[in-house]
Computed example of a mutant assay.
Amino acid sequence: MMGKPTLAARLRAGDSIYSGWIATPEPLIAETAARQAFDCVCVDMQHGLHDPVSVMRSIGGIVHAGKPAGVRVPVGDFAMASRALDMGAEAVIAPMINSVADARALVAATKYPSLGERSWGPARALSLQGIPDAATQLATANDATLAFAMVETKQALDLLDEILAVEGIDGVFMGPSDLSLTLSGGKEVAPAADWMDEPIRRIAARARAHGKIACAFGADPVRARYFTDVGYHFVALGPDAIYLASGIRTMLEGLR
């Protein structure tokens, strides 16, 4: 991947990135998605079925298809955040970052000293990304890899500016389903409700004010376009089960 703009560079330049979202732990699915028009492909360990081995293999398929890979790690699994980067991911998405301490723990796991505490061992990343030596990795990795803190609770929303101010947090990833669940006091999951518009726009605006990247998950193209229109530069579209069902439906409708 050396010589190509990194995912981080494209986002910091203001590009709109649309990412695939793969929950099924089959590397060929991730690779197939990466061979489509997505700008990036993420694999999901939190609500998806991936384990470390399927993540490692999926990242390889994504990168060999010419796209950057992202990984959403399980809640609180900062060790996996480090491993995902060592495996060659360019972005880590950490769910349920509800405090400044959580944000700092994410930075510690994903950035090398002196910014963070990430330990050394990126052999697979060096190979996949064509990084020639350790010195280049140390000089570039903190800028070239992304730590995204998921803001998806009322507590995180209340601390949004403090989380965004943590050095080493590259952006926030808005989880609309969980955010609607907590803002409604557990009464409903309503990611596209009208009353969600204000917090959605606020997150994008505050990220922009801090010079950070606003990210979101869109369940369909209409919602994904809405997020882009209100200031989100990284939008995931999926998951893969929807791709499969939609493709089957389109083919069967063509028969009839």
Score class of each variant (00 low, 15 high):
residue 27 P to L: 00
residue 129 Q to P: 01
residue 125 A to H: 15
residue 159 L to P: 05
residue 7 L to E: 10
residue 56 M to S: 15
residue 141 A to T: 05
residue 79 A to N: 07
residue 141 A to L: 13
residue 113 P to I: 08
residue 209 A to N: 10
residue 231 G to S: 09
residue 25 P to I: 01
residue 62 I to A: 11
residue 201 R to H: 03
residue 49 L to G: 08
residue 115 L to V: 13
residue 235 V to L: 12
residue 67 K to I: 05
residue 124 R to T: 10
residue 244 L to Q: 09
residue 191 P to W: 04
residue 136 T to I: 05
residue 173 F to I: 06
residue 219 A to G: 14
residue 230 V to S: 14
residue 21 W to R: 08
residue 213 I to H: 09
residue 171 G to D: 11
residue 37 A to E: 08
residue 55 V to L: 04
residue 53 V to N: 14
residue 183 L to H: 01
residue 148 F to Y: 09
residue 230 V to R: 12
residue 94 A to F: 06
residue 254 G to R: 12
residue 129 Q to K: 11
residue 112 Y to V: 07
residue 221 P to A: 14
residue 47 H to P: 08
residue 210 H to K: 10
residue 244 L to F: 15
residue 75 V to D: 10
residue 46 Q to Y: 03
residue 17 I to V: 07
residue 36 Q to H: 10
residue 218 G to V: 01
residue 181 L to P: 02
residue 51 D to Q: 12
residue 242 I to F: 06
residue 44 D to P: 15
residue 6 T to F: 07
residue 175 G to C: 07
residue 148 F to A: 03
residue 17 I to L: 09
residue 41 V to C: 10
residue 191 P to Y: 02
residue 167 E to A: 14
residue 153 T to Q: 06
residue 194 D to G: 13
residue 112 Y to T: 06
residue 87 M to K: 12
residue 220 D to A: 09
residue 223 R to S: 13
residue 118 R to Y: 04
residue 87 M to F: 14
residue 56 M to T: 08
residue 73 V to D: 09
residue 219 A to W: 05
residue 119 S to Q: 08
residue 33 A to G: 06
residue 94 A to D: 00
residue 47 H to M: 04
residue 192 A to E: 14
residue 190 A to R: 02
residue 161 D to S: 13
residue 167 E to C: 04
residue 78 F to D: 13
residue 122 P to H: 01
residue 151 V to N: 04
residue 173 F to W: 11
residue 77 D to L: 04
residue 80 M to Q: 13
residue 104 R to T: 06
residue 12 R to M: 06
residue 186 G to L: 01
residue 215 C to F: 03
residue 100 V to G: 13
residue 24 T to C: 01
residue 113 P to Y: 08
residue 162 E to N: 02
residue 230 V to P: 12
residue 238 G to T: 03
residue 224 A to D: 07
residue 130 G to N: 05
residue 216 A to S: 15
residue 210 H to D: 02
residue 71 V to S: 09
residue 65 A to W: 05
residue 11 L to M: 15
residue 167 E to M: 00
residue 26 E to R: 03
residue 218 G to D: 03
residue 96 M to K: 10
residue 184 S to N: 11
residue 163 I to K: 05
residue 56 M to I: 02
residue 12 R to G: 08
residue 234 F to C: 07
residue 72 R to Q: 12
residue 60 G to V: 11
residue 74 P to Q: 11
residue 251 M to P: 00
residue 119 S to L: 08
residue 56 M to L: 14
residue 21 W to Y: 15
residue 143 D to W: 00
residue 220 D to K: 11
residue 215 C to Y: 05
residue 252 L to G: 08
residue 231 G to I: 00
residue 11 L to W: 05
residue 58 S to I: 03
residue 133 D to T: 01
residue 43 V to E: 03
residue 135 A to P: 00
residue 107 V to W: 03
residue 74 P to M: 08
residue 34 A to N: 11
residue 177 S to F: 07
residue 110 T to E: 06
residue 73 V to T: 15
residue 65 A to R: 08
residue 153 T to G: 05
residue 53 V to Y: 13
